[in-house]
Design a protein around this nucleic acid. Structure first.
Lengths: 237, 237
DNA sequence: GTATAATTATTGTATATACAATATCAATTT
DNA sequence: AAATTGATATTGTATATACAATAATTATAC
């Protein structure tokens, strides 16, 4: 079989190839012509593939010169916001402990953010997240029962919440908003993270939206100040 | 004169139009055909314009339907990382106080991050950043003297560091990496932010790179925990 | 009236072509 | 030897065309 590859397939393949070229920092990657010939596609298709890889931050173009690898950026994938994948990327073994799993009437800030009518209920999942068996984050997920019915049948100890939404409920995402701040923690959270009555944590409030800008979930996380830092890479067009 | 607009000019114009359509949340924006006819361009050019606006998060496409406005995302521009602009966006009046401006041999972490040879010097600028005259951040900028000679002639009280690099030194940026964590602060920093001997702050370490991935500057900032939070919006393709 | 089919509008993907702008290198001229 | 010119490679911009995939609307059949 010699079925021709689609733009997406070519992009995926080249993406993987770049990821594996670990020591190829700032090296010339390819020319549009090479991509055209290698995959037997037109120049516009080759350009489209390269454009995606440029937008993703893997490559950069220089007029009259060629397309080059943006190696440093690979140290941190830009699109990962799942705890599991982040920890793996940092070479740690992630795990989770479900502290509680309930249906509740949410706090007002959550209800308003998620655009829920009064008195409607949402799932409230509390998890302790660990890396190499050390506590790294205390997390509370809120998501409307109506949106994801029967969520209780999934295993939140060993599964990713994002994966469940994406693959089990076929939910598509559009964007993700995170608000990061420094706070004091007490009681249960301080106890879980530090084993004492109070401490300082990095708080991340995450809201995930679908393609029609409807909020899907609201998650509050408190990260261990010494064991976690939040990394963000912004492309400057 | 009826000179035809370029892709960039059309994009800029539509960008401004979308920004001004404040209450147009989730409304249909345009079809490719309309853009073609309105600006007398080919479909591919119209698509390219819309693609940029989609990548910027202002619009989203739906196959068979059209192109729609992504309104909520406008509440927070994604590409702004300048303190001045961020504060303005939040409706506050920003100002700065230069605490010191020296040439120094940098700490090792800075030297290594900036790829500087041993014993070479860099500028070290300490600023207190305020919003409505209240201290919001204590900031230390490090940048090699070699890269931006005569930096001392600029006014860091009333001018933006980014603007100076961009417009005075014609420096182009590629990307920006920020590492955010929660820390305790003492001495001068605690005193400047909270007026007391110790406190908790949101620490942001920023590294800016040029198009060849060369690091240009290293900035450490400690933000007032109650007066600032870091917001990040990530598009999920 | 309701279900089915056809039509139309719209975005998605792909090809072919042309010329402009920039960078590099070789050939030519001074 | 140095400067200029020209050729070549490469990305940037723009047009024209074709057909596929999806969504909404309209027309038709029952």
């Amino acid at each position: 079989m010699n079925t021709k590859l689609s733009t997406k397939q070519i992009t995926k393949q080249l993406h993987a190839e770049i990821e594996h070229m670990k020591s190829a920092d700032n090296k010339k990657f390819a020319t549009e012509k090479e991509i055209m010939e290698r995959f037997s596609v037109s120049r516009m298709t080759a350009r489209q593939v390269l454009d995606i890889l440029v937008t993703d931050g893997l490559l950069y173009r220089e007029k009259g010169k060629g397309v080059f690898i943006n190696k440093r950026i690979l140290q941190q994938s830009q699109y990962i916001h799942s705890f599991t994948e982040l920890m793996k990327e940092r070479g740690l073994t992630p795990s989770s402990r479900v502290l509680s799993f309930k249906k509740v009437v949410p706090p007002e800030i959550v209800r308003l953010t998620l655009g829920m009518p009064e008195e409607t209920r949402c799932y409230c999942i509390k998890r302790l997240r660990l890396a190499n068996n050390q506590p790294v984050a205390y997390e509370i997920i809120y998501t409307p029962v109506e949106l994801f019915p029967n969520l209780e049948k999934y295993d939140f100890e060993n599964d990713s919440f994002y994966r469940i939404l994406e693959q089990e409920y076929l939910q598509k995402f559009s964007y993700d908003k995170e608000v990061v701040s420094a706070t004091k923690v007490v009681d249960e959270i301080a106890e879980s993270l530090y084993g004492k009555k109070s401490g300082v944590a990095l708080k991340v409030v995450d809201t995930l939206y679908d393609i029609e800008q409807k909020p899907l979930e609201y998650t509050e996380s408190w990260y261990h100040a010494e064991r976690y830092s939040y990394v963000s890479i912004t492309q400057k067009r």
